[in-house]
Design a protein around this nucleic acid. Structure first.
Ligand SMILES: [Mg+2]
Length: 223
DNA sequence: GCATGTTTATTAGAAA
DNA sequence: TTTCTAATAAACATGC
């Protein structure tokens, strides 16, 4: 199969959606938040496919960050100079890997229309988990969840040998909440946007977005 | 001008 | 088929 000289994995598009890729990047950072440029870098470092056509996919990536409420902006602190804000996962989407329990509250109000994934849709009814993977958690409004900020502990990254992915060599171990479980691919990345549109949980961190709007990610296995 | 964000529109595919 | 999802393009708004 060595079709010599031809594409190996450099050309193959990774089976991850932009949401997954972005969540992966964010989750891999110690602080659980990254500036846009770092998200780009993370993806480019690991997936050769994204070393090209940058204008195109980066526009799509930015579209996803804004469009999906599961990604929130965290203002920079004076001591963290740089451009743009930091991007983090909305609290309710924070950990859906790993933690497979938790109760889901019964909330939900069929309020109105929203996009496919509204938090209510997800928790309220078993929205529908494709593939059989259920995402895990929807915490009511957790007071504690790995908030983006600096103080978490572990950083971690994964070094996996995957087809279209590069591991730079740093394989830390133990990832707090990443995937670790079983079939989540190398990164546990089944994620899905959820949200937008809902208005239920308050936002926790110090997002730029005011209240309202709850995002979330659901699980979506690419392949 | 470029980087970062936000938003709307269109489209291909998969799912129901 | 219609519905849903993700990708893409593009207009536009800020801020540096
Ligand atoms: Mg957003």
């Amino acid at each position: 199969m060595p079709r010599p000289g031809r594409n190996t994995y450099s050309d193959q598009k990774p089976p991850y959606s932009y949401i997954s890729l972005t969540a992966m990047a964010i989750q891999s950072s110690p602080e659980k938040m990254l500036p846009l440029s770092e998200i780009y870098k993370f993806i480019m470092d690991r997936f050769p496919y994204y070393r090209e056509n940058t204008q195109r996919w980066q526009n799509s990536l930015r579209h996803n960050l804004s469009f999906n409420d599961c990604f929130i902006k965290i203002p920079r602190r004076p001591d963290q100079p740089g451009k743009g804000s930091f991007w983090a996962l909305h609290p309710s989407c924070g950990d859906m890997f790993e933690n497979m329990s938790t109760y889901n509250l019964g909330v939900s109000q069929p309020s109105s229309f929203k996009h496919p994934f509204a938090i209510e849709n997800i928790i309220a009814r078993e929205y529908k988990m494709p593939g059989g993977l259920a995402f895990s958690t929807m915490q009511p409004m957790p007071a504690a969840y790995p908030l983006p900020n600096q103080l978490t502990t572990v950083g971690s990254s994964i070094g996996t040998g995957w087809p279209h992915m590069y591991s730079s060599g740093m394989i830390d171990t133990a990832t707090p909440i990443s995937m670790a479980s079983s079939e989540y691919g190398a990164y546990g990345v089944p994620i899905k946007p959820l949200c937008h549109g809902g208005q239920t949980l308050p936002a926790i961190p110090v997002p730029i977005k005011p209240p309202s709007a709850v995002p979330s990610l659901a699980s979506r296995l690419p392949s």
